[in-house]
């Protein structure tokens, strides 16, 4: 009895993963797990399991399931960037300023954080670079700090994952320890 119950759950998750794939393909934008719960009419825990199953199924394929906070999006795998670019003719920003990469790195690893904290680390005013990153949809306001003036808190967006071809923030290289050794792993 237990075996069939487990098998049934696995099937359900598999079906749900297929539905999830179809929905993400059609909507073609970041979709939150809450939205997916309503669309798929399944509890959040099952949506999460389906997402994990779909991500696994897509490995080695041309598509990638991207995850940022509570958002999911179906995108092309970074390994296919060249061929996709041939059909897209897009005007993607292929380079940002050094200040922009620095600010992005700080936000990516320390999010959510305030502009004051970013400026403390970089030691310079960051208003313009934050504005430009926000305009490019690479960062966004994720909330307000409960402190005098309720300053804005910044975090990265799912677009940030896309310009780096990451499936999630967890794929970022680990934060190096104090005087960092250059990470060259041979695996």
């Amino acid at each position: 009895m237990i075996d069939t119950a487990v098998a049934g759950t696995v099937d359900q998750v598999g079906d749900l993963a297929s539905s999830l794939e179809a929905v993400l393909f059609t909507l073609n934008r970041p979709v939150t797990v809450l939205e997916l719960r309503d669309i798929l009419q399944a509890p959040l825990s099952q949506v999460e399991m389906a997402a994990a199953a779909l991500a696994e199924r897509l490995s080695g394929r041309g598509l990638l399931l991207q995850r940022h906070q509570d958002q999911l999006q179906l995108v092309t795998d970074p390994s296919q960037a060249d061929v996709v670019r041939r059909v897209l003719r897009p005007e993607f920003p292929s380079r940002l300023s050094p200040a922009a990469y620095e600010t992005l790195a700080i936000i990516a690893y320390r999010q959510p954080l305030t502009r004051a904290r970013i400026e403390e680390i970089r030691g310079v005013n960051c208003e313009a670079v934050l504005e430009s990153l926000e305009e490019k949809d690479l960062i966004t306001e994720t909330g307000r700090l409960e402190a005098p003036g309720t300053p804005r808190l910044f975090g990265t967006t799912i677009k940030f994952l896309q310009i780096l071809g990451l499936s999630s923030l967890e794929e970022l290289p680990p934060l190096p320890e104090a005087p960092a050794a250059s990470g060259s792993t041979t695996s």
């Binding site: 960037a81 670019r85 310009i163």
Partner: peptide, 10 residues
């Protein structure tokens, strides 16, 4: 970023 290995939305 410079490798251009982006992932694209539809």
């Amino acid at each position: 970023h410079a490798t251009g290995r982006f992932s694209f939305a539809g």
